[in-house]
Structures are given as C-alpha cells and as structure tokens.
Design a protein around this nucleic acid. Sequence first.
DNA 1: CTGAAAGCGCTAACAT
DNA 2: ATGTTAGCGCTTTCAG
Lengths: 338, 338
Amino acid sequence: MDRKVTTIQDVARAAGVSTATVSRTLAKPSVVAKTTREAVLTAVAETGYRVNATASNLRRQRTGSVIVLLPNIANPFFAQILAGLASVLTPAQYGMLIADTQSGPDPDERLTHYLTSGQADGLVLLDGTLSPEALEIPGRPPVVMACEWMGRDLPSVRVENGRGAAMAVGHLARLGHRAIGHVTGPQGNVLAETRLKGFRGAMEAIGLPLHEEWILEGDFTMDSGAAAARAWLTMEDRPTALFFASDEMAAGFMGLVQRAGIRVPQDLSIVGFDNIEIAQHLSPALTTIRQPRTHIGVRAAELLLSMIETGTRTGPSEVIEVEFIPGGSAGPPPPARS
Amino acid sequence: MDRKVTTIQDVARAAGVSTATVSRTLAKPSVVAKTTREAVLTAVAETGYRVNATASNLRRQRTGSVIVLLPNIANPFFAQILAGLASVLTPAQYGMLIADTQSGPDPDERLTHYLTSGQADGLVLLDGTLSPEALEIPGRPPVVMACEWMGRDLPSVRVENGRGAAMAVGHLARLGHRAIGHVTGPQGNVLAETRLKGFRGAMEAIGLPLHEEWILEGDFTMDSGAAAARAWLTMEDRPTALFFASDEMAAGFMGLVQRAGIRVPQDLSIVGFDNIEIAQHLSPALTTIRQPRTHIGVRAAELLLSMIETGTRTGPSEVIEVEFIPGGSAGPPPPARS
DNA sequence: CTGAAAGCGCTAACAT
DNA sequence: ATGTTAGCGCTTTCAG
C-alpha cells in the first residue's frame, strides 16, 4: 500500500521532532539527546526510512561514488583489482562505477568526459595508455593511477615491473639459459614497455646477447601468446627460454607448443608475469612473477579516499613489491645439439 | 581560476535566456527556436557547462544508474557478462555500479539493502543463491536475473544449463564411455543444481549406471577442481570420463592429474562447461559447452532498461542457447583392463 | 540540545 | 517559444 517512499519529513512527524534532528540523529548520533535519539530511531525503524542518497549528495555537493576507468572490462586481469577496490569503497559507503575506455572511439575523450561529468568524487585509472594531457582540467576530482603510467606527478599505486622482469631473466640465466627471448605487451602500453625495458636491462646487466628477433610483440591475451608460439615454432634459431609480459600470453603459448609436441620445460623454459589463478593449475605449473592485485586495489582505494576527504589533488606514489613464484615451466636448457 | 563549477544559471545569464530554456535546449533541442538554441549552445561551450547529474536526478526522481549484484567480483567468469551489460548501459547513459554479495555477512541482507537504498533505477542479479523472499519489497525497482534461479516469476535471462549437461553426457556416451562421473558446483547454487539435474537426467535417459561416489562436490573454482582430482586419483574404481559444472574446475582437475602422469584423453576424458578463454588454450584444448556470456549481459541490460522505461516490474524470461565445443580433452575410453 | 529556514542545481508544470 | 515558479529530499548554518 505504501507506494510512496518515506522521506525524512515522515520520520520527523512520526518522532515528533524536526527534520534537522532526524538528519543529525542519523549522521552524528552523539550530538542528540538520548531520548530523542531513541524516538527517532524507532520512527526510522517503523517507517522503514532510508535516506535518499541523491538528495543528500546534492546538498553535500558530492556524489558518493567513484569511477573506475579501465581499458576493457572483459579482461579478467582486472577482476581482482576491482575486488580490492570494492573491499575499501563499499564499507566507506562509496559506490563503484565501472566504465571502459575502449568502447568509444577515443579513450582520452572518455577520460575527459568522466573527469568533467561530475558523476564521481574521484577516479581510479587502470589504463596506462591514457595521455597525461587529458588530466589538465581545472577543478577536476582527485585521480589515482593504479597502473604503470608515463605521466609524472599523479598519485599512484604501481608495481615493480622492471624488477619483476629482472627476476625472471635472472632466474632463467641461473638455470643456464643464454638464449632468452621476450614476448611483450602491446606497443604503447606503459606496462609492456616497462617490462620490456626491465628485460633489456637485465639481459645487458647479466651480459647475455640480445637478439631482436627473439622479442615478439603480443597484446597480453592468450591468443597473442598462441600467435607468438606459431612464430617461435617456425624459427630456425630458437631461444631456449622465454619471458612473457603476462601469464595469459605464457599460457596461450604453452598450450600451443605442447599440442605441437614440445615439452615444457625440457625443450623450452617459460616464465610469465602476474600469477593469475590458472598459473598454478597448468601442467607444468607456470613459473611467474606475482603481482598482488587485490592489494593494489586496496591501496589505490585508500589513497583516493584520503584525497577525497582532505580535498587534495596530489598524493604519494606507492610502489608495491612483486614476488618470484617458482613453478615447473622453467628448467635447465636442453643440451646443445651435437 | 574558475574554481567554481558553472551551473545552469551561469549559462542562462551568458545566453540571455532563462534556466528553463537552457534545460530544454539540452534535453529536447527541437522544441526551442533555432536562434536561441544556438545562443545557448554557444554559451554552454564557452562556459564549459556540464549538467549536474545529481541535481537532475533528484528533480527527476531517478538515479541514472543500475546496480549489478554478483557473488564475487574477483571471479573472472563475470567479466564478460559485465562487458555485455556495459555495452548497453553506457550508451543509454546509465552508470553501472558493481556490488558483491559475499563481502558482508548476509548476502540476502545486501540485496535488501540495495533494493531499498534508492541508489539505482534497477538491479541486475548474477547470484543464484539469493532467496526470492528478499525481493518482496513494495515499491522496489525493477530487477532482472541474469542467472539460473529458483524464484519463479522474475524477469530473467538464463542459459540452457540442463541441455548443456545433456550434451556433454551424450558426447561422452557416444564416444563409448559408460563410467561417467560429475564434479558439481557448490551445494545450494541453482546453476550447479540444474547442471547436476541435467547430468542425472541424461545418464538415466541413455541408460548409464549412476555411481553416487562418482559425483564429487566442487565450488566452481580451479582449486576445487584440483581437490576433486586428488579424490579421483585415490579411487579404486574410477570413472573413465568426467563432466564438470565449470571449465575452471575442469582446468584445475586436468592440470593436477596431468602432473600426476595421467594422459588426457587417453586415460581420462574431460568435458567442462562455460568455454572460458583458457579452455581453447590448454593442452589438450578443453571439450566444453559454450555459454554466450557477453550476450547474456546484453540481453539482461536491454530487458532491464525496457522495464525501467515502461515502469513495469515484470518481464519475459529469456533462454539463451548453449553450444557444444569439441576439444581434445574427450576421447574414447581406455581399453578395459584385462 | 533542538528547530526554523535557506538553499544544493535542476526540471516541469503552468503562464504568458 | 520562452519565462516564472515551485519544489525534488536532504543538510547545515544560525538562533534560541
């Protein structure tokens, strides 16, 4: 029967107080007298009152939500970061709006749109290809980058990508590999570039020869890993080990070469990056570099909330450690052909 | 310097018209005169005006967003459904809020919360374990179930789960298997139960013996698949084929038994469900049942939007077809031991 | 400690 | 075709 939603007025009437008192009771219970508080709370319970977030937000000049902008929602890589974000935002009473940059024609334009739309109190960016210029908007909400990025001074939570690449190369070198290749992420992606740079740096530091033809371009997906596998299979002079910029590509590669009769790690060693869930369930389990993705989300959300609360547009850049995860996919190189 | 955000008043002043005209120009340009329209549009461009969504929503008694409630954000299974939802919601100018039911203590309570919070114009439920009673709220927003569910009359988009299970069993039986087992999803999950029911029904229809000890309980995750593998390895009398209620479990199982020296499909045939991305990149590629997840999201969003627009709380229940995906993980049973 | 009152920015009758 | 006006439901000074 109560088609109509109850408003703060209804509660005030039921409790015999003013709307201001109801509002106060709900916001800071300590400032109202115990008896009135109880009366209000009873009235709230009886009427089933819920504050209208839209009205509250309008009055308080905020939106109560945060936009998470990512390149592609369908990419499961982001799922855990989202979980980390949600675990902080939800208890803090912030809604989490998801938007992707790829669905429209121009990703930067999308960023600008969300920055100026006033639909959120803050943004979390998970797309490292957005251009820093798009952020130069006066009066824009606070933004946290939860991703490697080329822009300089933006609060961020990022991962030791270069160091991870070096760990991978170091491990392979220690196993005796000298012919090490790399499958990269998409060109223009800063993540991909940082890992590639880390790879090059480590190879040089260790004194291993760098064969440019052993650097294959991928785009982080399993399909691109499989494509790299086809390329590798046709090579005359193959590397004995490969470091992949993502586990997905490593898995796509490994599946294809295994079906072609290659044994991992006897014939070829593989090291991935990310430690996605499947990594430890492959046969052999993938040797990889772990990124604590949930933690990235948690820290990014905490950072953003503190910026929202203090009203500042700047903040620290936090670096999160990566961890080497040994698996069965990397072993000593095959004996040299006689 | 323009610290302050421009409001509709500023635009009205700049264009020399009333705020109502500005509002009209932006909402239904056809109803204002060409000259005024141009003046307003110029003023909008000059001032960089963006309508304040919160104020607009308050006035129009709507929120402009849709909440997607799922059991666990970190589960990549949902990523593609979200992509499908977003591809419809974003162009329609609806925000997509993500919330999960597992983070709190009581999932039903969370549903009630979002149903009464007035934070969304509609909800999409992806959690089949929620109880139908939680929906009995007067004046609640429209809800679409994008998932198998036990509730009767709720608009929904679901998949032929039972038929998929039957396809899997039929395929295995045709290959010559008689000893077929099943690894289920979590108890209480309707998806899991429908697939189990489909499995039982198909076994019976074909006339194959049903061994209860060959029905292992999982929870859709890779880890639970691996746990099932450990159980299978210790069995005296093993089934020669297994149908899994999810690809994730199939992958977890296959990885573990392969590392234990079992050959798939020579020693054991495996059929999954879902056709997640990795399925075709495993070695052997997984034989599975495809669910068009993006499409599920698209249809659910379209259905919900039409309900929001027409103000109705009811709608059709749409069933989406599944497809058999042949892979390398199912083959003829091993020759009987002599 | 509580109430009155003034809007937050916008849209939709209703007038003109 | 455009302007005037009255709120949407809430929070927050400012008085008392």
